[in-house]
Computed example of a mutant assay.
Amino acid sequence: MGEPVMTDDATLVALAAGGSEHAFRTLYRAYARPVYWLAHGLVGNQADAEDVTQETFMAAWRKLPGLQLAGDSLLPWLVTVCRFQAANRVRRQQRERAHTTDAAQDSLPATVDVAQQVIDAEVAALIVAEVGRLTPTDREIFRLCAVEGYAYQAAADELGVAHGTVRNRLSRIRGRLRTVVTETEST
């Protein structure tokens, strides 16, 4: 008999903090993609983004026992951890680049656009905050379709709602997020 499906982040965090690998895997599956895309935006390449994503979840695993989840989602906290891991990686690579004479081994561009990294991180934080304001059903639709890549019908089946409900709500969610990003870019 398998473990029950759990979707409440606070419950999953408590179980993972107690050593449940199943709960931690569930959190990983739910948030690995958004963490990866944030990391990719911060470090600029696939290999480093994959490393930062893994470092983020390794740090999360270590820190879960003392974590008091603020809100319904673990994602805002993971975004913060990811930003620190990415910044550490960029600094470490800059130090290594400064100490090596072999430019062919450079894994970073000659200049790092810190301003763009800050903007990208701010936009990601705004999106995470906006997703946090969604209804629980809309958050699940966003997670399933936008984060995990479910098709509309698969998400509808998972949630027990109609295909049109998923399609219409996801369209509305994307519009809200697009507005947040557009407003940020115009300021």
Results as ranks from 00 to 15, higher is better:
Ala39Val: 05
Thr26Asp: 07
Val52Asn: 06
Ala23His: 03
Gly41Phe: 07
Thr53His: 01
Ala39Asn: 02
Ala47Gln: 07
Ala23Phe: 05
Ser20Leu: 02
Asp51Cys: 03
Thr53Asp: 07
Pro34Thr: 10
Asp51Glu: 14
His22Ala: 15
Val35Lys: 07
His40Phe: 15
Asp51Gln: 06
Tyr36Asn: 10
His22Leu: 03
Val43Trp: 04
Val35Asp: 06
Val52Ile: 14
Tyr31Phe: 13
Ser20Asp: 11
Val52Gly: 05
Tyr28Asp: 08
Thr26Tyr: 00
Val43Pro: 04
Gln46Ala: 15
Glu21Phe: 02
Ala39Trp: 05
Arg29Asn: 14
Leu38Asn: 07
Thr26Ile: 05
Asp48Thr: 06
Tyr31Gly: 05
Gly41Gln: 01
Gln46Leu: 08
Gly44Met: 00
Glu21Ser: 14
Ala23Thr: 02
Val43Cys: 06
His40Arg: 15
His40Tyr: 15
Gly18Ala: 04
Ser20Cys: 05
His40Gln: 12
Leu27Trp: 10
Arg29Val: 11
Asp48Asn: 04
Asn45Gln: 12
Val52Ser: 09
Trp37Lys: 08
Glu50Cys: 09
Leu27Asp: 13
Ala47Ser: 13
Leu42Asp: 05
Leu27Ile: 13
Thr53Gly: 08
Leu42His: 08
Glu50Pro: 04
Tyr31Ser: 04
Ala47His: 07
Tyr31Arg: 03
Arg33Gln: 15
Leu38Tyr: 05
Asp51Phe: 00
Pro34Ser: 10
Ala49Trp: 00
Ala47Cys: 01
Asn45Trp: 00
His22Met: 01
Asp48Pro: 07
Val35Tyr: 09
Arg25Glu: 15
Gly44Asp: 08
Ala32Lys: 12
Asn45Lys: 01
Val43Lys: 11
Val52Ala: 14
Asp48Met: 12
Ala32Cys: 14
Ala32Thr: 09
Val35Pro: 09
Trp37Ala: 04
Gly44Phe: 00
Gly18Tyr: 00
Tyr31Pro: 07
Trp37Val: 02
Ala32Arg: 11
Phe24Arg: 10
